[in-house]
C-alpha cells in the first residue's frame, strides 16, 4: 500500500437525544459551550488534530442525531469507525438504559472485524447539574456496566464546566489509534482499469 501514513481516526458519538453529544464535541474542539438546546440533524463531523504519544493524528468526530426522525439517511457513516463513544446523561435513567441499544446497534451496523475488542468509551455527562444532586445513575452502576461490556473505559464529564472532556477524548484518541488495523489492501484485478469499466447508465449528462 502507499507509504502515506494513515493518520485519520474516525470516531462516532452516540447516545439519546439531549445527553450533550454536540456540546461535548463543541467543548472539545471549539472550547465553546451553550446552554441552548439545538437538535442535531443527520450526522456531521468536526476534525481535531491531536497528539497521541508522539504521533500527530487527525480525529474526525462524528456527531449524530439522537432523535431517530432526524436520521433519515441511515447510518452508513458508522462504517470504518475506529472508536465509538457512548454518551448518557447521569440525571436521566432512560439515557443510561439505552446505552445497550446504542452499542448493539453500532456493532450491527458498523460490523467491525473484531466486535469483541472494538474500542468503546462511555461518558456520563452533565455531572454538574444541580451540584450533582439530581443525578440518578451512580458512578458505581455505570462503571459496573462498562466493565461488564469488555472493560470499556468510563468517564464522568461535564461539557458545561469542561470537566474531564480533554482527558476523555485523549483516551478516545489513544484507543482509536490502537484499533488501527491493517487497512484492507486493495489490488486491482487488472492493470488496464479502463477495460474493466462497467457500462455507464444512460442517465442525463449532469
Amino acid at each position: 500500500m502507499s507509504g502515506r501514513k494513515r493518520t485519520l481516526l474516525k470516531v462516532i458519538i452516540l447516545g439519546d437525544s439531549g445527553v450533550g453529544k454536540t456540546s461535548l464535541m463543541n467543548q472539545y474542539v471549539n472550547k465553546k459551550f451553550s446552554n441552548q438546546y439545538k437538535a442535531t440533524i443527520g450526522a456531521d463531523f468536526l476534525t481535531k488534530e491531536v497528539q497521541v504519544d508522539d504521533r500527530l493524528v487527525t480525529m474526525q468526530l462524528w456527531d449524530t442525531a439522537g432523535q431517530e426522525r432526524f436520521q433519515s439517511l441511515g447510518v452508513a457513516f458508522y462504517r470504518g469507525a475506529d472508536c465509538c463513544v457512548l454518551v448518557y446523561d447521569v440525571n436521566v435513567n432512560k439515557t443510561f438504559d439505552n446505552l445497550d441499544n446504542w452499542r448493539e446497534e453500532f456493532l450491527i451496523q458498523a460490523s467491525p472485524s473484531d466486535p469483541e475488542n472494538f474500542p468503546f468509551v462511555v461518558l456520563g455527562n452533565k455531572v454538574d447539574v444541580d451540584g450533582g444532586n439530581s443525578r440518578v445513575v451512580s458512578e458505581k452502576k455505570a462503571k459496573a456496566w462498562s466493565a461488564s461490556k469488555g472493560n470499556i473505559p468510563y468517564f464522568e464529564t461535564s461539557a458545561k464546566e469542561d470537566y474531564n472532556v480533554d482527558a476523555a477524548f485523549q483516551i478516545i484518541a489513544k484507543n482509536a489509534l490502537k484499533n488501527e488495523t491493517e487497512e484492507e489492501i486493495y489490488l486491482p484485478d487488472t492493470i488496464d482499469v479502463n477495460a474493466q469499466r462497467p457500462q455507464k447508465s444512460s442517465g442525463c449528462e449532469c
Binding site: 440533524i41 443527520g42 433519515s72
Partner: peptide, 13 residues
C-alpha cells in the same frame, strides 16, 4: 424523499 430530507434540513442546522 423522506430518506433525503435530512440533507435539506441540515442547512437549517
Amino acid at each position: 424523499r423522506s430518506e433525503l430530507r435530512d440533507l435539506v434540513g441540515k442547512n437549517l442546522l
